[in-house]
Nucleic acid binder design. Structure first.
Length: 937
RNA sequence: GCCGAAGUGGCGGAAUGGCAUACGCGGUGGUCUCAAAAACCACUGGAGGUUGCUCCUUGUGGGUUCGAAUCCCACCUUCGGCACCA
């Protein structure tokens, strides 16, 4: 057969040609169109770091492919792009190299625009938004003022990380390592208290939580947000100090109130100074000073041993009336709940640890649900050790005989259930020798003496028990509490405390209340008595938006000595960032030293006033950028054109990195809810669907970094293999949500595939000499339509890797079919057109070129997505699997519509199957239509 | 510690109750060439074999089922998030 060589595939020429044509014809310009359903596709706003790296490609190319797919499926697709242009790297470049942040940023954007165009994405460049331009940040400032007017912005003192050597405040990501040192000079950072602006995101905590049920986001991201919001239900209970000051605590376990044997306040708690007795003053002051020096992170290190000091003061437990000591400790955080806790050491691990360390009393008030208890029978403590052991065995009680220190062998007994415990104690009472005791711990805490059984059911009981034990066995003189004594025995440790719900015990009138209703009953009772009420607490904190930096949107607030704090009048926006500032770090905003900026006049009294000199967190800019896109730099009196917004919003499909799960994605949801309450939008959630892609790793399976030297520069591959190859390879690596590693040989393989497509479409064979058989044509069409189905389903579900695998398989089939008589039939032409349309979202330039060669009308990207015909895709012949006792013994080619009886008969008649059946009788025959016959013998 | 994701050939991965290892990379052999590269073709999980076949294999151990990579239980490893949150 004679072949006419196709022109060589020259990706670079072809891609620049089509990019120019797409631009010239305005192919991706987007306008409202009420005849088509709209689809707002969005990929996360890039930061203009300088060069487009492979990570940008990995995030954006598949997102573009999906947007193109939606467009071919009849949607009016809006796929905008812009730049998150404020932020630290620009300012650092200014400090280090003397380039103005604006110039650095705008130069980077200019370079990235060119690189982004090389990707061949369908971006609506006419909607580009750059967040550092005054026309943009005017609206960022507008949002600040609106939030302020709604009471959602407020100012308070809050700590920032500060590097004493660089003399500058640091962002969270600039603080590194366990020892929390400065990213640039490795000096350990210190905390500084500064008066800063916050947004009251906590006002929407419940809505942010509940809204998660309404959006199609990955469960992983929703779980992270739920975790971050950290809603916990419980009660607020008011204790009183002995002097009478109210002292409120938050607890999730009001059912354990009777077991609250002490209280702990955060060292910063305002009541501490008043409560501390003169004798304890010195210790408390020292501890408070030490706690203040530590960073929040240091304080929160879990593995650290508990510390604390006694204030000398006492409180009254409101339910038991008992006098309990008040301590301070840094394991209690001022920022959560009320900054004070009731400590229930018997049912909280932290309180237990604290109580054991400081000799505070521990009383169990909740029954163990598992009924487990332990007892150690010391050598010589019972009348007849062997007989006792025998009694245990005959009563089905488990024990182990092992040495107890150097005293000889004892019995380590494990009990289960109230009945066993009861009988054990009775038996022990009968066996225990005078001058000894035995204890049962766990499900019951009972001390068996020769004349009585004492239960640990109150603080006082504990004291009596301990006193008697000391008189019997002096070596325990050192122990301050019964529990401390028991804790010294490792055998007991796992049954001393539990945090489960269970029947209330030792709790006055509530004793006997079942675990399931304990919490609600106690809360109801507390409310009736006026001692407390149901309460919900959140882990979520308000959003700190002040940055002591130059390169950000100035916070539009004015401080007047006479009129106080007030927002800049809307008509005066934007508050322009001055160009002429000194960036040298001082630990404060460079704007503070710009007199022309700082000094202003009061909009109310006209007198001299000062501007706020801090700028805003860049997460502010990115909280509303998807609204800006619909009409960038809008000139009206709201941030975006309401008509455009009404048509395009909200975002239908968002894609981006999972690293934004709790910051950006939480802030933008908060913004949308606030915007709804301002009357700007009529929906609750900004992004209906979210897909989070994984990370692209270096060839060595490690995160790409300059120091590792495993960074891949996409430009190198774009110039040689072409953008289409890079795009398609990134999509082929593996499931998009899992990320994957770069492979320089893998991308060659993809390039080969693209070349094979090129050749199968463009290389001309001689016409076949014989006409094609019907069966051959049917098979070709079956393959075509099956491929349409797979590729459609896979791209819709972001499974680009398997979509490409299906296309490779289809192409491999076409390479063979080309040598047969189906070549140049109508079915052949259908196959080539289909192949071209199916690859259009993945490799847009290649598809456009091939489409032109096939005689299709410009542009391939405006064509309808091919539909598949299930009748054509259906198999005529299937492989019927025959199993004998679950093992495959034969594969039969049978008509797809074979009758059950025929299939079974064929299976049983197969020679290999017969060998396994031999003379045995068939016990069961399973038939799955179209799949298999399973024979059980 | 809690929450989440993942574990399959030499490698990336496919298959979510019915042929394990699709597709690609790598490897081996071949065609073409003076030669090489490229391209193309064939083979490629392991072990055995009487080669028109068998056994083993999806992190480990159990279970459910005619049948399990897939469902259930327990455990191990890796990665991500949160972490003294009362």
């Amino acid at each position: 057969m004679v072949k006419t060589k196709a022109p060589k595939y020259q990706p670079h020429d072809l891609e620049t040609k089509w990019q120019a044509r797409w631009e010239a014809t305005g192919l991706y310009r987007t306008t409202r169109d009420d005849d088509r359903p709209k689809h707002y596709a969005l990929t996360m706003l890039p930061y203009p770091s300088g060069d487009l790296h492979i990570g940008h490609w990995y995030a954006m190319a598949p997102s573009d492919a999906k947007a193109r797919f939606m467009r071919m499926n009849g949607y009016n697709v809006f796929f905008p792009i812009g730049f998150d242009a404020f932020g630290l790297p620009a300012e650092n470049a200014a400090i280090k190299r003397g380039i103005h942040p604006k110039k650095w940023t705008m130069d980077n954007i200019a370079r990235m625009r060119i690189q982004l165009r090389q990707m061949g994405a369908m971006w609506a460049w006419d909607h580009e938004a750059v967040s550092c331009l005054p026309e943009y940040y005017k609206w960022t400032q507008w949002f600040f003022i609106k939030l302020y007017e709604m009471g959602l912005a407020y100012k308070k003192f809050a700590p920032v990380d500060f590097c004493p050597k660089c003399n500058t405040t640091l962002a969270r990501e600039q603080v590194w390592g366990e020892d929390r040192h400065c990213e640039r000079c490795s000096t350990p950072v210190v905390k500084r208290e500064l008066n800063q602006w916050f947004f009251k995101i906590t006002a929407y905590a419940d809505e942010l939580l509940d809204g998660l049920d309404k959006i199609e986001w990955p469960e992983r991201v929703k779980a992270m947000q739920r975790n971050w919001i950290g809603r916990s239900e419980g009660a607020q209970v008011t204790f009183r100090t002995e002097r009478g000051d109210p002292l409120s605590v938050f607890t999730t376990r009001p059912d354990t109130l009777w077991g609250a044997t002490f209280m702990v306040l955060a060292p910063e708690h305002p009541l501490v100074l008043e409560l501390t007795t003169p004798e304890q003053r010195q210790q408390v002051d020292d501890y408070r000073r030490q706690a203040a020096r530590q960073s929040e992170i240091e304080r929160q290190a879990t593995d650290k041993e508990k510390t604390g000091v006694f204030t000398g003061a006492y409180a009254i437990n409101p339910v038991s009336g008992k006098r309990i000591p008040i301590w301070i400790a840094d394991y209690v955080m001022m920022s959560y709940g009320t900054g004070a806790i009731m400590a229930v050491p018997a049912h909280d691990e932290r309180d237990f640890e604290f109580a054991v360390k400081f000799g505070l009393p521990i009383v169990p008030v909740i029954q163990r649900p598992d009924g487990a208890a332990k007892s150690l029978v010391s050598p010589g403590s019972v009348r007849d050790m062997a007989g006792f052991a025998e009694w245990l065995t005959t009563n089905g009680i488990g024990y182990e005989q092992a040495p107890v220190g150097s005293l000889g062998d004892g019995l380590y007994v494990t009990l289960h259930g109230a009945d066993q415990i009861e009988r054990y104690i009775a038996q022990m009472r009968a066996s225990i020798l005078p001058g000894n005791w035995n204890e049962v711990v766990g499900s019951r805490f009972a001390f068996v003496f020769d004349d009585a059984v004492w239960d640990l059911d109150s603080v006082e009981a504990g004291e009596c028990i301990l006193a008697r034990c000391k008189s019997i066995y002096p070596p325990v003189w050192r122990n301050r509490t019964v529990m401390e004594m028991l804790h010294s025995l490792p055998f007991y440790r796992d049954v001393l405390l539990h945090a489960e719900y269970g029947e209330m015990i030792n709790s006055g009138e509530f004793t006997g209340t079942p675990g399931a209703e304990a919490r609600s009953k106690v809360i109801k009772w507390l409310s009736e008595k006026g001692l407390g009420h149901a309460e919900v607490n959140y882990r979520l904190r308000d959003w700190l938006i002040s940055r002591q930096r130059y390169w950000g949107a100035p916070i539009p607030m004015i401080y007047c000595e006479h009129c106080g704090t007030m927002p800049v009048p809307i008509s005066d926006l934007p508050v322009l960032l001055p160009d002429d500032v000194d960036f040298m770090p001082t630990g404060e905003s460079p704007l503070k030293y710009n007199e022309a900026f700082r000094n202003t006049t009061c909009p109310r009294c006209g007198g001299p006033a000062e501007r706020e000199t801090d700028t805003m967190d860049t997460f502010m800019c990115s909280s509303w950028y998807h609204y800006a896109y619909v009409s960038p730099y809008y000139k009206g009196d709201v941030p975006f054109d309401p008509l455009e917004g009404k048509y395009w919003l909200p975002v239908d499909q968002y894609t981006g990195g999972v690293e934004h799960a709790t910051m950006h994605l939480m802030y933008t949801r908060f913004f949308t809810k606030a915007m709804r309450d301002m009357g700007l939008v009529d929906f609750d959630e900004p992004m209906l669907r979210l897909f989070t892609q994984g990370t692209i790793l270096g060839e060595d399976n490690e995160k790409m970094s300059k120091s590792r030297g495993n960074v891949v520069n996409p430009d190198d591959y774009v110039s040689t293999l072409g953008a289409d190859t890079v795009r398609a390879f990134l999509m082929f690596i593996g499931p998009w949500e899992l990320g994957g590693s770069w492979s320089s040989t893998g991308i060659e393989g993809l390039h080969r595939f693209i070349n094979r497509i090129w050749n199968v479409v463009l290389e001309k064979n001689d016409a076949p000499t014989e006409p094609a058989q019907d069966a051959e044509v049917a098979e070709l069409r079956r393959c075509t339509h099956k491929t349409i189905k797979i590729v459609t389903d896979d791209i819709r579900a972001f499974k680009f890797n398997t979509a490409l695998a299906a296309l490779m398989q289809f192409n491999n089939y076409l390479v063979k079919a080309k040598e047969s008589n189906v070549y140049q039939t109508e079915a052949w032409q259908e196959a080539l057109r289909t192949l071209t349309l199916l690859i259009a979202p993945l490799t847009p330039h290649l598809a456009e070129e091939l489409w032109e060669h096939l005689g299709g009308a410009y542009s391939v990207h405006q064509q309808a997505w091919p539909s598949y015909d299930p009748m054509l895709a259906a198999d005529e012949v299937i492989t019927l699997i025959v199993q004998v006792n679950g093992k495959v013994r034969a594969r039969l080619q049978v008509p797809a519509d074979i009758a059950e009886a025929d299939a079974k008969a064929l299976a049983l008649a197969n020679d290999n199957v017969k060998m396994y059946l031999a003379d045995k009788s068939v016990h069961k025959l399973v038939y799955v239509p179209g799949k298999l016959v399973s024979i059980v013998i």
